[in-house]
Structure formats: C-alpha cells, structure tokens
Amino acid sequence: MGTTASQLGKDMLSEYQHCVLIHDICFSAHKRFAELLTREEKDLPNIRVSMERILTLPELKSNPFRKRICHVFSTSEQKDGSLTFEDFLDLLSAFSDSATLEIKSHYAFRIFDFDDDGTLDCGDLEKLVNCLTGETDDTRLTTEEMRQLINNVSSLRQSDIDKDGTVNLSEFQHVISRSPDFVR
C-alpha cells in the first residue's frame, strides 16, 4: 500500500504490472500523477488528489462525463471524487487499449448510472443524452424528441430484454458487446 508519490518502488511497479497494465504505462502514469501534486504532497504516502485537480488533465477537460469518471473510480469515503495513485491507475487501465470489453462495459455502465442505483432508468438516460448533446438549452433535444428517443432505447425494445423499462448491467453489456466500435 505505502507508496510515497515521489518515486515508484520496483516491487510496487511489478505488482501494478500484474494487476493493471503494461510496464511503460505504469511509469508514465506515475509521472502524470506526480505532476498533479504539489512539492510537499509528493513525499506523503497514499496522497489523494482532489477532483478539481484531476479534471485539469487535458484528457478529461472536455469530456462531458469527467465528474462521473472521477466518482466512479474514486475510493474515497467522502464520495468527493478524489483519486489516489491506485485509483488513477485503475482509471487509466480501464481506458487503455488493452482493457477487455467486460471491464470497459462495466465501467461505462457505472459512469452512465448517474444516480448509482445499479440500473439505467429514464432519468439516467435523459442525463446521459443531455451530456452527449450538450447541456445548454439550444443544444438540448426537445422534450418530444427526448421522449421518442428514450422510448426507443428503453421501453419494450431490444436493449431492454427483461421488459422492465430500465436497462441493467447485463442488458447493457449485451447491447454493447455487439458494437464493433466500442472496443477499438
């Protein structure tokens, strides 16, 4: 557990490799993470980086789901979306090319599950679509369009196999596993 953030021990590195990713990504990940820290913080073990600072990463800056991403990968008890280095590695490995479909779809589901209730209901879908199209009034779909769309996605159609009006993880994975574009 106890890594100081300034250097990455060899044993930790090999452990991370087993668990997460290939060698060179660990190093670059650690470098990226260290850049987010101030000088004093670098020597503390298990330091948490607040969500605001994580969001300054260029990769996340323009992502509409950036806050959700931080919340999903955060292990913080206060649910403030702050990340430790290990959470950060988790995040990177889930988004890396080598991640499996299962991992990707799992985290995608959790990112899209805005109210954390383990299912994508109408509210989640609406938020999701709003995130995708843009949140301002002129970019948003009209209420009528939204209704038609959500009807298409959730109710009594293919993606909702058990016909309960919401999309759960296995249904989600079922839909996504057929998408050739999802795992690129």
Binding site: N63, F95, L128, N152, Q158, S159, V175, S179
Partner: peptide, 14 residues
C-alpha cells in the same frame, strides 16, 4: 433500436 442504443451508449469518443 439497438442501433440507437449504440448511438447513446457508445456515442462518446473518450
């Protein structure tokens, strides 16, 4: 309609 599910679920390019 699976098609439109993709558009939403796999729509964003991360």
């Amino acid at each position: 309609s699976v098609n439109v599910s993709y558009k939403i679920f796999c729509g964003w390019d991360f």
